[in-house]
Design a binder for these strands. Structure first.
Lengths: 340, 340
DNA sequence: CTATCTTCAGAAAACCTTTTCGGCTTCTTT
DNA sequence: AAAGAAGCCGAAAAGGTTTTCTGAAGATAG
């Protein structure tokens, strides 16, 4: 920045001097305390306005013990999950009231420790820890002096408070939708078996199929979270089980691949085969032919709740322990229901 | 968080008491100042360790005038651009040295003002303002008491310091690559004409074609940044100009649509038609058939430089004014060059 | 007119760390 | 042994705000 003078920031003392009062009175006037005559208050407010005074949050925080800041410690490099959560948290806090420190540990425990120290040194009021998978992650331990909420990836310690998408419920919800659409011969292609998200969704799928008196066509097909796998798996599937009328994919990426391959093999979506995915990643779901039905994990909601918990804990309320699940949301598009 | 007592945070006084020295000595011992006997220093360090003392950055910042925090003020809702920039900034600062406040104004000027006040109140050492388009954005004005660097979207005020991708150069680079691949009948489909990014890339495309003694096939086709438009435009293009041997798309999304349509119309990529995009958005480029050649805007580099500028300005160095352009980078994949 | 009450303003302490400077102890030198 | 030097440590101030408490002035009642 080129056009600023590095002049000292304006302090409450300056305001008080201009208004002809003491700093104590100025403080009370600006903070709406009583014990200040109206005319005096007005003088102070005008002085503050004129100097465009903004109180030093460090000094305030030093005294109050609260800083109005929250740390968001993430390992989610790509930001697919952390951003909706960040936005939800900002919503819950209210713009300008609370500021969020965002730190990316890049999946590195050492770096996470560095960031953690820095955040605690800066006296954040609370912490939200966001993982990049839904598998449990190591707890930060019991000695963190501020409330901690684990989001997306739950903590592996039962005494911590965690919030994670209900993937089992999501799997169930997906199958219920397909069944409601009249599909009976359903297959499931998903990502790496190492991911709890994949296994949980598959479990939900099985449960819902059983409840509907149906059987999965073929086995659950685990491999990688990519379009390529979606294409390859779909090709195999349609060859071995030509009777299939729905392919449920473990992610929108896989679903995009499936869509392509179904199309290539001369079948129509959704008339011959319905396709759906998980995550509701808009750039993928709303640009395909046809648009892709998907299960949204409600991450923004998750972020809002996490933030609310942090604040509730700060206010001394008991937010409990253990892992709570966030309900998913079905977003119906043209890949399962023919457009009117 | 359930398993913490809300006990007062441990302060330097506690450490000093445990070590049997004064706070002054404790401070010097922990900060590597001399005038402390080695044995004393060791006692203090051990005491600090034992109490897991972490110095209060607020008090430190209050005194030093520097807080070791930087504000990242963004309007980039989706985070496509802001996250690489954030990561670059973190890299430049070094993990734990500097923490970043991330604020999302959601394109709302009022909200931006709120966040700005909050950031200045928290005494950030500097600001990076990230827009969501490369069109110039309103300056924050000359009265910000800390260094400001505008990233991605430059400021509309010539006295500010801005850093933005070189889209003209990117357009040129793309055409040069296609020409180097032996393509001579090149068309250009791009996004909304209202975006400077679209116009600048088109300008670079024209310049490079002229330099190569070639002409664009058809007009530059402006519409929206979507796969759908990529498909539709490609269909029109191939019908009107069947001789086309390369389609340069203004974004990877458009390019994905183009790829699909070329494929549908029975032509092969890259043998009959080369396709390429801009942005190098990996989820799109590395999952298509074939993988998509793209121009990467080097956003992480941009973020690193922006951060370095903020710090240079803090150190009193002159970082100049005006807009500097960041060089793009060509990422070659299978959509322009047949795989070996 | 005095005594009590109310209203409002200011002084001072507190929050926690860093730095400067004075002073005490120990060692060296003559 | 005395004087000077060097090495260490601690007291105090500074940074900006909030809060509590004291005190002064004006208002009301007796």
């Amino acid at each position: 920045m080129a056009r600023t003078d590095p002049a000292r920031a304006v302090t409450l003392t300056d305001v008080a001097r201009l208004a002809g009062v003491s700093v104590a009175t100025a403080s009370k006037a600006l903070n709406g305390r009583d014990q200040v005559k109206d005319s005096t208050r007005q003088r102070v407010v005008e002085a503050a306005e004129r100097l465009s005074f903004s109180p030093n949050a460090l000094a305030r925080g030093l005294l109050a013990g609260r800083t109005g800041t929250v740390g968001l410690l993430t390992s989610d490099l790509e930001g697919r999950f952390v951003l909706p959560i960040l936005m939800g948290a900002e919503d819950a806090f209210g713009a300008g009231q609370v500021s969020v420190f965002l730190c990316d540990a890049r999946g590195d425990a050492i770096r996470e420790q560095y960031h953690l120290r820095a955040l605690l040194g800066r006296r954040v009021d609370g912490l939200i820890v966001v993982g990049r998978q839904t598998d449990p992650r190591p707890s930060l331990g019991p000695d963190i002096p501020v409330p901690v909420v684990y989001a997306y990836a739950p903590s592996d310690h039962p005494d911590d408070r965690s919030l994670t998408p209900d993937n089992t419920g999501a799997g169930r919800m997906a199958v219920e939708h397909l069944v409601a659409c009249g599909r009976t011969r359903i297959a499931h292609i998903t990502g790496e078996h190492a991911y709890a998200a994949a296994r949980d969704r598959a479990a939900g799928v099985r449960a819902a199929l059983e409840a509907a008196g149906l059987e999965l066509v073929g086995d659950v097909m685990y491999s990688e979270w990519s379009e390529r796998w979606g294409r390859d798996a779909t090709a195999m599937l349609l060859e071995q089980h030509p009777e299939i009328d729905a392919i449920l994919c473990g992610s929108d990426q896989i679903a995009r691949g499936a869509l392509d391959m179904v199309h290539d093999l001369g079948r129509s979506v959704p008339d011959d085969v319905a396709v759906m995915g998980f995550d509701n990643w808009e750039v993928l779901t709303t640009n395909s032919r046809p648009e892709l039905t998907s299960i949204d994990a409600n991450l923004q909601q998750l972020g809002r709740t996490a933030a609310q918990w942090v604040f509730a804990a700060l206010d001394g309320k008991d937010i409990g322990t253990g892992t709570q699940f966030v309900d998913p949301r079905l977003v119906i598009r043209g890949s399962t229901v023919a457009r009117r």
